[in-house]
Design a protein around this nucleic acid. Sequence first.
DNA 1: CATAATATTGAACAGTGTTCAATATTAATT
DNA 2: AATTAATATTGAACACTGTTCAATATTATG
Lengths: 191, 191
Amino acid sequence: MARRSDHSRQELTELALDKSLEIIDEKGLSGFSARAVAERMGYTVGTLYNVFGSYDGLIFRVNARILDAWHAALAAGLHKTKKDKMRYLAYAYLDFAGRHYNRWTTLFEFHAKSSPPDWYRDRIDRHFRLIEETLLARTQDPHQNRRRAKVLWASIHGICILALGGKLDVVGSDSAKTLIDDLLENYLGAA
Amino acid sequence: MARRSDHSRQELTELALDKSLEIIDEKGLSGFSARAVAERMGYTVGTLYNVFGSYDGLIFRVNARILDAWHAALAAGLHKTKKDKMRYLAYAYLDFAGRHYNRWTTLFEFHAKSSPPDWYRDRIDRHFRLIEETLLARTQDPHQNRRRAKVLWASIHGICILALGGKLDVVGSDSAKTLIDDLLENYLGAA
DNA sequence: CATAATATTGAACAGTGTTCAATATTAATT
DNA sequence: AATTAATATTGAACACTGTTCAATATTATG
């Protein structure tokens, strides 16, 4: 039996999240389970439930981790970019989704039974604000800006999720990148 | 015990698909299970597996039904529409997704372990061709046409899935319809 | 009418999230 | 230091999932 002094509560959550991402990287969400995580931690399901309360509670934390990494990857290069920030953002979006495909799809394949906690919604908002602020360099009208941000956000998401999921017959020249180029060219070029 | 003369094989599949859609309409994919379908049919799981082979096999058939209904809804009004067919198509897309939300999300929430059968891919292609052909009225270059169809297809999909899923803060004026309008206006207006 | 063929059943299996009494470990108190 | 209170950990149990398959019931065939 694992002694309770082996890991503090915080170390325990850290360990759980690490092992969770490990499993997701290896097998995706379908290979993910509470018992699988517990086993890799060297603990049992009970302990996991004592820490996270429920399966949903655990995955929300895992997804928050993924969102944090994703946001960091987007924001990092954005500050260094001077011209055409919007295009950089879209590329970086696609790049992360492709590089960490299993983590990225987990964000959307997971359908919680309960509604997301506040700290999770905050991370979604933060993600969205990135596009909104990048667009702000182009437009001044805040209403129009928000609407355009939503359209671009949703469109880029749609392109990534269908293209990377192999549901758009994207081969050769018509890669996901090309589609994003086409979207930005025509949508923003006209606006 | 149900006699095997009660329903022919075809009647059996029909019954199963009907009950499946019934459950999905009521509870969504999370309330859907092989046993639940069998129970409503008045049979047992074994019979269901004898007919459909596997859970994935069943759901692919259910989803094909949903795609058929969706395609019919899109195509029906499209032929009657004269001007701005593209806008009609996008509206009809959104309308079906909203009117039969549980059926629509089932199409995307279901993640098969096996790759889809040919007759399923055909239905996806047929769906995509609708946009492609509608666009053809605008452009002549087939390469450009295909690319634009993909971009629009993915973008509209992204808008619907995020907006209807409540992940875009779409309230008041910024409804999903408004976003679609904005997309078509700017993307096609420039092209 | 006997036999071959097959449709249907229901129990069994391994897996899932979830709960919770029993136990082991630590902290607090005397 | 010994006892007691508090809590972390366990593992069995529950209801559910998809899946399999021998046994049985039903129908078709010779």
